[in-house]
Write a protein that binds this DNA or RNA. Sequence first.
DNA 1: GGAGACTTGGAGAGCGCTTTCCAAGCGTGG
DNA 2: CCACGCTTGGAAAGCGCTCTCCAAGTCTCC
Lengths: 343, 343
Amino acid sequence: MQSERLPTLEDVARVAGVSRATVSRVINGIRNVDPLLHEQVWSAVDQTGYVPNRLARSLVTRRTGTVALVVSDSETHDDDPFMSRFFSDPYFGRVVGGLMSVLRPAGIQLALQMVGADGHRRLIGDLRNGQADGAVVLSLPARDPLPALLAEAAIPAVLIGRPAQPVPISYVDLDNEAGAALAAARLAAHDRRRPAIISGPADVPASVDRISGFRRAMARHGHPWVPLESGNFTQESGEQAMRALLAAHPGLDAVFVANDLMALGALLVLRDAGLRVPQDVAVVGFDDSSAAVAARPALTTVRLPLEDMAAEAARMLLARIDDPGTRVTSVIYEPTLVVRETT
Amino acid sequence: MQSERLPTLEDVARVAGVSRATVSRVINGIRNVDPLLHEQVWSAVDQTGYVPNRLARSLVTRRTGTVALVVSDSETHDDDPFMSRFFSDPYFGRVVGGLMSVLRPAGIQLALQMVGADGHRRLIGDLRNGQADGAVVLSLPARDPLPALLAEAAIPAVLIGRPAQPVPISYVDLDNEAGAALAAARLAAHDRRRPAIISGPADVPASVDRISGFRRAMARHGHPWVPLESGNFTQESGEQAMRALLAAHPGLDAVFVANDLMALGALLVLRDAGLRVPQDVAVVGFDDSSAAVAARPALTTVRLPLEDMAAEAARMLLARIDDPGTRVTSVIYEPTLVVRETT
DNA sequence: GGAGACTTGGAGAGCGCTTTCCAAGCGTGG
DNA sequence: CCACGCTTGGAAAGCGCTCTCCAAGTCTCC
């Protein structure tokens, strides 16, 4: 890597018999260059095997051709195993896939940035002086100061998921309330009378919305109150919640679970309890992740088009980078219900 | 982001009343600086809110503090949906998690690089002139030219998974043969007499080893030949393979499946065919991914300690970056069998 | 045929940082 | 008391690139 010196613009210029500036013009596709020289330069580039040095270029253009995927988790620390759990969750992969689908064709790199309780200041600093042109933020904890800091520093950024406190930053999200209502409607239509909820953490916006959406819709269908047990989006927590629910409300005949992984856990517990799904208890999940298809019985679930959302976030970010004057906007996706075997 | 100019070394120097060089020394922790000045400099840093510009620093030091995670897939193109499938596979997340566990404490960034059929040359160029200090390579296709190119360009790199052709590059891998043998032993011990294999693509080294390891071990146990059907590591392909196997060998009583996702598919098909697992047919998977625990019945599987492997790869890479003279070495992990309900 | 407008190439000044080289300041021993 | 060696700070030369100026050359039109 450091062995012999790599060819530079200067070298190309020498071989082509022109000045550095001319080579730069040709390479960056600026007109006003004699076709003949144009030709000469390219052949010199071939000859020398020249590749522009991105660092040097970025230093002057103030553009890196990189965006950061910031995974913010101000509540845990570096040695916390939570992070690895997060990465193996399908959620992370879907987001990366979605981002890549628009970033890659645009020739933009994705840099992964994790930031814990302390790193905020540092992150902002790095971002500001050219680590990346902008950031897509996956903000995990409820009261994360990061979105506000980003807005304040005027760093182009797009959040995936609505921030807990209103902040002047663009975001993409799903209409979680509507999604939950969809689930409720399905359950009510099949005449379930004793529904329950397994929710996510009580302080995450998405979680809150799913709960209120479900409860509100159920109220409309004549069930003013729905018991709730909350988990943390892992399969294991889903199992625990299901057990607790079963103990407290043995007669329940429907469960709305705030994500598929927890629903998977719930399914296992129901099975172990000798309850048939969907005959005895109907289950609706949320996300439509690969887990939903893999589940037995296959899970009816609210589709969260995460890949599309991430792709849209990437597009919004790119637009904002191109023109910082772009207005702060948010895109809310409409959920759909994917009916499979558990309802 | 571009609004007002960020403080530079120069600014700090002015505030502290010393020269640029001195500030640089203090910041980079070089001795030989009067404690008094030392103090003054740091307070000036605080005062100005100075953050060193990584780009400028990298340009001169030739160190970026970034390593690339290269996902190489020379056989598909940009618009191929294969990639998104890959990202949602737990495999990707586990690797990222493992890498991060050592990179993050070391203060090193991870940049995601995807490279398709054409991008090799460009990638090498970018890597050579300082996109990253080194690369961890996830090489998907069988005859990928990338490892050889990296070796030739003398770029610090570590592969995850043995390359198809021998190449002078370090790698981490699992002893796939031994893993398959473990599965075979388990099956034989439970007196299964009609085993079958669902393998991965025939040209991927890991796949080949798992097949030969299983067959060899089974031969030792008195089953000289084992029928095989191959898939592509997706759940769906697992289903297809299982169906084909069932059609061709209705009497089979054991299946060794080359990864958990395909095993999940196999399980579903067996269930639909009215076969009980493990009573009628025993199933052993490979990977010990989250899918194995989620499966019903829970999947007996060969554990692939991917997080550990990725972490080790990161450590090896870091060592090699620090001292390019480090010898090319490979670390082979020993597999273990995780017994659950399917055997 | 010459002045003005336009095209095209080159010189050079940085972008923000590190690091070598040098000079000044200090203490010591002869 | 002066020569010598050591410590410590500063000046300046780049790292590889872009891009603004400016000069030279070409063309057009009166």
